[in-house]
Write a protein that binds this DNA or RNA. Structure first.
Length: 733
DNA sequence: CGTCTCCAGGTTTTT
DNA sequence: CCTGGAGACG
């Protein structure tokens, strides 16, 4: 924090080298100033990694490297936003519209929106009907949409969905698409024709799944060296954060972009060639996404593919106390296969790591809430100083309840996204269909929402016609409509019922009119509001939730929030293009609620460990540290290296803490799938996480359980706190 | 044919 | 608890 103030105060546009050297230690300075050539930074937890990256970018800008030549890739939206924010802080007043800081997926979308039409058609058997090509207005399918399409593909192949784990099938498809498995080698060929049907569906609907966002740019580059050349020329300075989490395809994309060629350069061909300016930053101990294809062996590959790599190790931890760091090292040292690294801290001593065990999850949550109150008053901490980390999303609920009950302001990030709520999905489906009428999955979601009397049979009939013509539903509707008009209003195609015909026509008219409206000029939020009125979504909610007016209101409120969010986005000066497509681009990749940055300030942070990566908090609680949760039983089923990954996860959780770490578990927990010893329905006896035993015992302190006296004490302290505030004394730093 | 109601089931982590 | 699917009802 102090460093930023220093920079801001010392002439932001001309940061002299001296500024950096005051702010940074030796290796950090080296990492920030080595702008040319390939650089590999092994950055231990809390070693100032993000700072190094942001300073590098600031330095590039200062050196006159144009914004559009800089590309910084991250893994989560949150990390991308955070990085952008910090660069902005370092370059105040400077618009950064041409600087690309994004996730790999968002970057893929960017490329595809521009150039997907250069992609050749799919491989076809001779004589097969011509398959549709992707267009620029493609839809992006999230997990839910993808599951819908898989279901449809199963139906199409006359395979019953019974006994099929759709989730697993989706994973299998993903593994195949990204080249992690091949049919017959790990991937059960039984599902191959369903996969092909699924792929076919995506093409017909002009839709891409998340994997396509990485796979198709690669394909595009392989087929069109000219297109690759364009991007290669533009992005002359590339940085990748959390490199240990890159998957193989992400790595390939990076390599292509950096070298400008589809194939890796052979060592012999490298002599004399300018080695690209690529800087990757990672920490193998924090690799926690291998289940998603992350492969920290990329670190080794990088050294091979980019000869002359400058390797820098950042080993000084600025974040945590020695106690916390030793606890973390105690845990992680149980992993084999690590890149050698000794993390040390200048912050000696520190409070012991606390561990407490409660009887039930409710009590655990309550004692965390109580502890937060107490520490806030005793130690003068702000709400924002606390982070509560859990292994799974489902563990957050009880904790949220306790925080709510204790009037503790909090924000969650990592919960299911706002954009996954049904009412929001409905509305976004309208926008998607308007943008891309070929998008069947979204069209089917709204064709009868709000109810307009288009039922199952009508839909089945149209789907069949569509299928016969190798077209989407929308195209089938157009064709039917056309045919009917030319047959003088006589057609059996729309079904016997006049009413149904009218409903379908009305639906088409709605989409068409919205299409010309939405793609025209004017404020998107205003147009969305009109759409909501036009479809009378409010009446729909009222009738759907007749007995539950509160739900209806709540859902409508969410719609309002969405419109408000669109408006805010429109007004944001960093939004270049505020059209429909730009909005959908942005929104389609948000799968998680990252919590509002601004609104979240000054609140307790509740999130999954995965979501906490890259963050730090003065006080960290790790809740639900039980066997079966961390390490997670489902993860262990995956076998082999999974225990090590779970350990890394625990390591990441520990190293989020600056001064104080508190770990908790409970003796009994409600579980959906009860274990072997279940004393009551759905309740399992649980043991503390085996990882706790890996923390050197002298660093651990067993917390006493909370009792009422202490609660009273907390209340007394609250009184003191209020008095302090009354007298104008600051309560927190 | 479309809608309503009841019942079972249930996601480890994210794009 | 909430969602989604199956079956009954209008």
């Amino acid at each position: 924090m102090r460093s930023q103030r220093f920079l801001l105060g010392s002439g932001p546009l001309f940061m002299a080298k001296a500024d950096f050297s005051v702010e940074l230690n030796g290796p950090q300075l080296e990492a920030v100033t080595a702008l040319e050539g390939p650089v590999l930074i092994i950055a231990g937890a809390g070693s100032g990694k993000t700072r190094v990256i942001t300073y590098r970018i600031a330095r590039m800008l200062e050196r006159g490297i144009p914004q559009q030549a800089i590309l910084a890739l991250t893994f989560t939206n949150k990390a991308a936003h955070e990085m952008e924010r910090r660069v902005r802080e370092l370059s105040p007043g400077k618009p950064l519209r041409n600087l690309t800081v994004s996730t790999f997926h968002a970057f893929g979308v960017r490329i595809l929106r521009e150039d997907i039409e250069a992609l050749g058609g799919p491989e076809q058997d001779p004589g097969e009907a011509v398959r549709p090509r992707y267009r620029k207005n493609f839809s992006i399918y999230d997990e839910t949409d993808r599951t819908e399409l898989i279901k449809e593909s199963l139906r199409e192949c006359r395979v019953s969905t019974e006994g099929v784990d759709l989730y697993k099938l989706g994973q299998l498809f993903s593994d195949v698409k990204t080249g992690r498995l091949r049919w017959g080698e790990g991937a059960n060929s039984e599902f191959r024709h369903i996969y092909e049907e699924y792929q076919y569906g995506l093409q017909v609907y002009n839709a891409l799944d998340f994997d396509d966002l990485l796979v198709l740019p690669i394909k595009l580059f392989e087929e069109n060296p000219g297109v690759l050349e364009k991007y290669h020329r533009r992005y002359r300075y590339i940085m990748v954060d959390e490199f240990q989490d890159t998957s193989l395809i992400q790595y390939r994309l990076l390599r292509m972009l950096a070298w400008g060629t589809a194939e890796p350069k052979q060592a012999s061909a490298l002599a004399g060639a300018a080695v690209p300016n690529v800087c990757v930053v990672g920490d193998d101990d924090q690799s926690i996404y291998s289940w998603r294809g992350a492969n920290y062996e990329n670190l080794l590959m990088f050294e091979q593919d980019f000869p002359g790599v400058l390797e820098i190790k950042l080993e000084q931890n600025y974040r945590s106390t020695t106690t916390i760091l030793e606890a973390a090292n105690g845990v992680i040292s149980n992993n084999s296969n690590r890149k050698e690294k000794t993390l040390w801290s200048g912050n000696s001593g520190g409070k012991p790591v606390e561990f407490f065990q409660s009887d039930t999850e409710r009590e655990e949550a309550e004692s965390i809430a109580g502890n937060i109150h107490r520490m806030r008053f005793r130690e003068g901490r702000a709400w924002g100083d606390f982070g509560i980390l859990v292994r799974t999303n489902s563990l957050m609920e009880t904790i949220e309840e306790a925080l709510l009950a204790e009037n503790i302001p909090y924000r969650v990030s990592g919960g299911t996204s706002f954009f996954q709520r049904k009412e929001i999905k409905d509305l976004l489906s309208y926008l998607r269909v308007v943008a891309n009428p070929r998008d069947d999955v979204n069209l089917l979601r709204i064709i009868n929402t709000p109810r307009r009397g288009i039922g199952k049979t009508a839909i089945t009939r149209i789907s069949e016609t569509a299928r016969k013509n190798h077209s989407s539903i929308w195209e089938a509707l157009e064709r039917l409509n056309y045919a009917r008009r030319h047959a003088g209003g006589q057609s059996s195609l729309f079904g016997a019922e006049d009413q149904e015909k009218n409903e379908l026509e009305a639906f088409m008219a709605l989409i068409e009119s919205q299409r010309s409206l939405m793609l025209g000029s004017g404020s998107l939020s205003a147009k969305v509001r009109d759409l909501v009125d036009k479809i009378d979504y409010w009446s729909y909610l009222v009738s759907e939730f007749r007995k539950n007016e509160k739900t209806a209101k709540w859902k409508y409120l969410n719609i309002e929030r969405l419109i408000q969010a669109i408006q805010d986005w429109e007004k944001d000066e960093d939004t270049g293009d505020s059209g429909l497509y730009a909005y959908l681009n942005r929104v389609s990749l948000i799968t998680r609620d990252d919590g509002d940055d601004e609104a979240g300030k000054g609140k307790v942070n509740l999130m999954t460990i995965h979501a906490a990566k890259g963050l730090e908090f003065p006080v960290v609680f790790i809740a639900g540290a039980e066997e079966g949760i961390i390490p997670h039983e489902r993860s262990l089923e995956a076998g082999e290296g999974s225990i090590e990954e779970e350990r890394r996860l625990f390591y990441v959780a520990i190293t989020r803490a600056r001064d104080k770490l508190s770990i908790s578990s409970c003796r009994r927990r409600k579980r959906f799938r009860p274990g072997q010893n279940a004393p009551a329905e759905g309740i399992t006896e649980t043991a503390p996480s085996p990882f706790l035993a890996e923390i050197p015992p002298h660093l651990l302190e067993y917390g006493k359980e909370e009792n009422d006296d202490e609660l009273e004490e907390a209340e007394a302290l609250e009184l003191t706190g209020r008095m302090m505030r009354t007298f104008g004394l600051t309560e927190s730093s």
